[in-house]
Structures are given as C-alpha cells and as structure tokens.
Design a protein around this nucleic acid. Structure first.
Lengths: 234, 234
DNA sequence: TCAAAAGTGTTATATATACACCCATGG
DNA sequence: CCATGGGTGTATATATAACACTTTTGA
C-alpha cells in the first residue's frame, strides 16, 4: 500500500532485496573488517561483504541479524542500518537493491570455526582488498557514519571486550578518528562522563606495569543520554 | 549478485520496493510538511506521504526525484535518503519495503496547481494528522535527522528563498531545534561562518524598519567544509 | 637497571552563554 | 509619536587544547 503515485500509473514491479553486513571489529589497536570470499558464481573467489537476500516473511533487521549469526555465530550484537544502495545497474545480473547494515562485534567472541567455514577473513581497515560491486563504497560510508556516531553515543564500547583498559579505549577512538589523542585529556574526558566503573583487576598484556580494567556502566549511560549530554570525545 | 549466504540456501524472493518522500517546507516561522490525501483504495481518503513504487529501470534516487517532481513540479532539490523501512508486516497488503527520502524545498517555488491536483496539503509539523502505515514514524525519524544534520551542514538554507533575512534564518533554526535562540549570539555565529553575503535590499514584510536581505555564498561554504569546520549553531 | 607503557595537573586559549539598550520606520 | 521588530557589544563561564614528568615492573 505504499504506492501513491505508483498506483496512478499502475507501475508495480518486484525486485530482489538484499542486505549486506559491514562487520567491524577491533584488535591490537587496529580497526578491522570481516570480509567474505565468495564460494559461488558469479564472481566466485572475489572478496565481498557478507550478505543475503531478504526473505518475504522476514523483517529487514531480522535478515541482518540472521546473516550475522550465520557467519559469526553471534547474537545480540549492536547493529545499525547504514543506507540502501539502489542504483539500477549496481548489480549487473538483475535488479537488486541492498540495504547495508553495520555491526560492531567483540572480536574475541565470534565463532572462529564458523567464520573459517564461510571463507571469511579479518582485514585491517586500511588494507582492504577490492570488494565486489559497490561494497567498498558501503564500507567507506560505514566508516564515516561510525566516526560521526562515535561522537554522540559510546558505541566504542561495543567493540571492546566487557572489561577493557583506558589505553585500549583510547586506541579504539584513535582508530576510528584516525588521529592521535592526548592521553591526559582523553582520560579526563572519558572519566568525567561517569559511565566507567574501575575494577580491581589489571590487564598486563599491554605493559609490564599493567593497566586497570574498567567496565561500562549502562545505567549511568542511560541517565547521561536522557540529560541531553553527548559523548563527544577529543 | 548481492546474494552470498542467500545463494547457499537458494532463497530468492522478489518484493515491492517503494520510496516515500518527506517534504519539508518553511513558512511564516513554521516548519511544514507536505502531506497527500490518498485518492485510491485501499486507505482511500487517508493522509499519507507521497510515494511511489521504484521501477526496475530506475535508480532509487531517481525515483525519489520523480515523485517530488510529479507532486510539486520541483527539480534540483535537496534530497537525502533517510532510512529504509522493512518490517515484514508494515504494509498489510503485500510485502513491500520503503526507502524514505526527505526533501527540503522552498515553499514559495512549488507548483500550487500540481499540489492541489494531487490532493496534497501543507501541515505544520506539530499539527500533523494521522498518516497511514509507518509514515508518522518516518516523519519522526526525518525530523530527528534534520535536527542533527542542521548542526553540521547549512541545510537550513535549502528551506529559505534565495534571498532571506537573518531573523528568518533564526526562526528556521528555532523551528528545527524547537527552542529559542538569542538573536545577538545567533547573528554573531552565523556571520562568523562567512557564508552569507549581505545585499543592499531590505525585506519589509516582517517589520516597518525592514531587515537586510542576505544570500548564501556557495564557494565559501565549500571552503568551509573542506577546512573541517562545522555549522553547529546555538 | 632500563625499556616501555600507565598514570597524573596546570595553564592558555577558544568557544558558548547571558544579558539590555538604541535604531528605523510606517501607521 | 509610538509600537514593532531590527540591530549591536561586553563580560563571564565553560570546554578544549597544549604540554612533561613520575611510576611500575618484567626482562
């Protein structure tokens, strides 16, 4: 029923609707992307994002989560619609529009076997291979939105393990913003937001001295959002 | 070819793809929306956004511009994809996803006859009627994005006539942000951006004394964007 | 003992906010 | 001559940016 003018002209043509997932992870101070090697023709053997056709009885959002689960085993992941790519000749085979969605996952939690089974591989964000169709464009747009989004919501936390150190968090923001941040200013700012809980443990993987672990406090975050504050960092 | 996992399962089903336009205008200090009275069944006589099915040989973006032209006569309008609405039962008739796009138009430039022909009407943004399907949700989302977008790009200018006064511009931002702004601070800020050209004419429609008209300087705007500046106002 | 990362405070600068009066004009 | 909206400047508070040294510890 979303026709209006369409009705008047009696032009009603169905087309394929796909969804492609831009899966971000963060490891060793680097922002990474999970990319898939196509096992089927056409374009077999080329790199692409992980996607699927949307089924008739399936919400768009559900389709995205299904793809993510099928390829990484993960559920309950932060996922957000990016935009829809609908150039008429974007897919040379047949008319197909694609709703791109991006996911932020904890890279230590995914199912490695499943990922391998799907011929997927993590690439550093600035060492991406050529992807099929408009997938490089999708990644480019997703990075831009991630950058903007990170200013207003603490989505950085979605990419870190439950317990993380402040230097790790800083490295993540540096990777997203693609610039260095001052450690004193960063720490001051992020602690002033009052959404981090300091734990008694230390993580010694990054240095001999070790850095204190923190975890994210969701309640305080909600309060903060409601009070109209924003998470602009650096 | 955007299938991947989809291929593996051989699930390939076509569906309808529509586009709906959220058309904003600004008049007498009020933000307004152009809404359409359905002339066809089902839901005949109900208010809805203006939309159409996307044709097989038509870019998504082109479909949006076509709808806008067919309903208002306008071309070369600022238009931007909002997001895609794809709940499986959003349209009770058949499976149809809709790519919402919003347009900012100069309310003094549209083709009144054409609009009337289509049974369309301007509503003030906070006096909108109930719209069909998820169209109220679309408007809600568009308003939010407009608000956020206005902070970083001078899209306010798209809604004003070519020549406008600073009080008009302020009223527009007040309508978008839904709060009052201080006239001294607003003027200072907006002039400091160096994208306004003061003209020798005055507009006396708002007061006896009259207010100087300005126009928007696109070249300086481009420079400003490149230098990384943002248009955050108030 | 030293290399390497963690942690800490202060100052300067820029930006945002608050605020009140005069100006020009048509009616 | 007065009511109405247009136009202006300054002082304060807040946020951001710049900057260098001490601590801890395993190798």
């Amino acid at each position: 029923m979303s026709e209006n003018l369409g009705d008047l002209y009696q032009v009603k043509e169905k087309m394929y609707v796909a969804t492609d997932c831009i899966i971000f992870g963060f490891q060793n101070g680097k922002l990474k992307l999970l990319v898939f090697k196509r096992k089927v023709s056409p374009l077999e053997g080329e790199w692409s994002l992980i996607g699927s056709f949307v089924r008739l009885d399936e919400d768009l959002e559900v389709a995205g989560k299904r793809v993510l689960k099928e390829s990484t085993g993960l559920e309950n992941v932060y996922m957000q619609q990016l935009r829809t790519y609908g150039k008429k000749d974007r897919d040379p085979g047949y008319r197909c529009i694609s709703v791109a969605q991006y996911a932020l996952i904890r890279i230590n939690e995914y199912d490695e076997e499943l990922v391998e089974e799907h011929g997927a591989k993590w690439f550093e964000i600035d060492q991406l291979p050529l992807l099929i169709l408009d997938h490089n464009q999708m990644v480019h747009d997703a990075l831009l939105q991630l950058k903007q989004n990170a200013r207003y919501r603490p989505i950085g936390f979605e990419l870190l393990p439950e317990k993380f150190t402040i230097p790790q968090l800083q490295a993540l923001y540096e990777a997203i913003y693609r610039r260095e941040l001052d450690p004193r200013n960063f720490r001051k700012k992020v602690l002033s937001l009052n959404v981090l809980e300091k734990l008694d443990e230390k993580d010694r993987s990054g240095s001999k001295r070790g850095a204190f672990l923190y975890k994210f406090n969701n309640d305080n975050y909600r309060d903060l959002l409601e009070s109209g504050y924003n998470f602009e960092i650096a």
